[in-house]
Design a protein around this nucleic acid. Structure first.
Lengths: 156, 156
DNA sequence: TATTGTTATACTCTATAACTATA
DNA sequence: TATAGTTATAGAGTATAACAATA
């Protein structure tokens, strides 16, 4: 079988089909491509709640960690404190979350969801779970489990 | 075993250990975390050649696809044309790559590496391969192969 | 002296509209 | 009419320095 013909470049020095086989051996390239693909879908679906993927992550951390501080959110999501302030202010103005004084650290502020925020996140997390199934529809349940396990081995 | 105690939150409404277990079930979160981790390392190492990870990807595409056009690079790397122009100009000024008229499309410009660019990328791709082993040192060869295969199923 | 939250600000990345020259 | 490359520019994301209040 003339594999060379299938791979062949068109005329003199022009490229027919782009060969990305080298980049595909690099983890960073693959992780970035998947990240872009999934986050684009995530962005589309979360637009219904007027939440960016990062907004969703922040609120989700507050759901599962009532009283969490800005600093802790920054640590968990690899954000910088100055870049979190505005996002929290906006979500406070939207009445999605509330700041309460921290029980045993006067410098810190504990974050909590309002009832409105709770109801929004109940729906948003359902949407995220549905989207998750969609984005991984090409994988079996076992493959998805393996994928998450391997990814977590790399950063956790 | 009192698992509840290990999971327990400190005092009234404050958070001891942040619980990220829900986010860890989401592919987008995991892919982004790995992407950030690997790209940070990539950025550090490629600084020796004064190349960003994207610069490296662009030059690598030219290495393996001499005569490739801007448009084709944009498609392969999910970049927008206006954001590629400046990068190519800079690399042309650094004498890493050259623009030549496209053999059969007067609108297009074929990109080629200069000798300087060839020599740089020979070293840079070696660095990338080494870095790759480092970043995936927690995985066996079989696990890495599986990981890349699963990631590619999601975007290719 | 160190840390939390904050402001101000700069820098980079990403996105959109519009132009030109070729097809 | 459509496409390749380009310009200008706007917007989002990411970065550092410095300050007040508290530890």
């Amino acid at each position: 079988m003339p594999v060379v013909l299938a791979m062949r470049k068109t005329p003199a020095g022009s490229v027919d089909q782009v060969d990305t086989s080298y980049l595909e051996t690099l983890l960073g390239y693959n992780a970035r491509r998947v990240s872009l693909t999934v986050i684009e879908l995530f962005t589309q679906r979360m637009a219904a709640y007027d939440l960016s993927p990062v907004d969703f992550s922040i609120l989700s951390l507050v759901v599962h960690n009532p009283g969490i501080t800005s600093r802790q959110i920054c640590g968990a999501l690899a954000l910088l404190p100055p870049n979190l302030v505005g996002k929290i202010s906006i979500m406070e103005k939207r009445n999605l979350l509330a700041r309460r004084s921290h029980p045993d650290d006067g410098r810190a502020i504990g974050l909590h969801l309002t009832d409105v925020g709770e109801r929004l996140m109940l729906k948003a997390e359902k949407t995220a779970t549905a989207l998750e199934h969609e984005a991984t529809s090409r994988l079996s349940a076992a493959e998805k489990k393996t994928l998450l396990k391997l990814l977590q081995k790399l950063y956790l």
